[in-house]
Amino acid sequence: MPDRLLAETPFIRRARRMNRKVRLFCFPHAGAGASAFAAWPDLFPPEVEIVAVQLPGREDRVGEAHPASVDIAVRMVAVALRPYLQGPYAFFGHSGGALLAFELARALRKRGTQPGHLFLSGQPAPGHDIAAPELHRLSDEDFSAALRGLDGTSDGVFADPGLMKLLLPTLRADFTLWESHRHRPDQPLAVPITALGGDTDPRAPVDGLQAWRQETTGAFSAEVFPGGHFYLNDSGAELAAVLAGTLLGQESTYAGQGERTR
């Protein structure tokens, strides 16, 4: 791998747990960094170690170059995660982070390792078209309006022109990254998949979540929460309970139960 990729390896924010049974690697939505999961360690039992992944160009790495493609992003993350893949682990990704988690799982399969579970949130399965414009092609004004409509950013951010000027290139670069990505069909994973989303999310409708069933030969379930694209901001504790229960087997398995609405 070129030295440049190694130099731009993603940051890993790890909430160390001495008695961990499983690591949950978390991949944020477009434009976000590790701070998207800052509250998560307090929501999970001590057996689950939260590891947040932050790509170059985000948050305190805003001055660094963004990955030029999903393939490069996957290679970067694979390098960064290599020291942490001992023992049981799982992936959670939201929106574009869900696609990154999925593509990373496919790449790791070729290296002889796999996550024990994939939690894919706020993202329809590849090939499941949604009636939504590609945001990265919009003007700055329309792009900002579309972001506001997703309800994942505080109004104070949009009210600060200087802050928006700083954030827009990062946000646009991420939406360009994921909206330009073209899925390459391959054999389904053998990893259990749980698809998650909000019941009023136009970018990840329930049928798009259910379509993830085709990407695994393992167990599949879908969990639907009240809310839109950023349902997890209001249902963090409930979401953590689903993830922890699945990872630690504290409830009868979610696998095979189909869609459940909360």
Rank of each mutant, 00 (worst) to 15 (best):
T153N: 00
R20Q: 13
T200G: 12
G256A: 13
V22Y: 14
T176P: 02
A101V: 03
G122D: 04
E47V: 00
T253I: 11
L108I: 03
L85C: 09
T113M: 14
F37I: 02
V53K: 03
Q54M: 12
A38R: 13
L135G: 01
A244F: 03
A52I: 02
E238I: 00
L166W: 10
F91N: 06
L163I: 07
F11S: 15
A65C: 12
R172F: 05
S35H: 10
L167F: 07
E179M: 08
A204K: 01
R14F: 09
V70N: 09
P185R: 10
S144W: 06
H94F: 03
F92R: 03
P226F: 06
W178Q: 04
G127I: 07
T170E: 14
V79A: 15
R14I: 14
D140M: 06
R260T: 07
F220E: 08
D199T: 02
D60T: 14
R184G: 12
E49T: 04
A244C: 07
R23M: 09
F102I: 09
H94C: 09
E8Y: 09
A105F: 11
L5Y: 00
G63L: 15
R20V: 06
R61M: 10
L6T: 09
G149W: 11
D234M: 06
P67W: 07
T200H: 11
A131P: 00
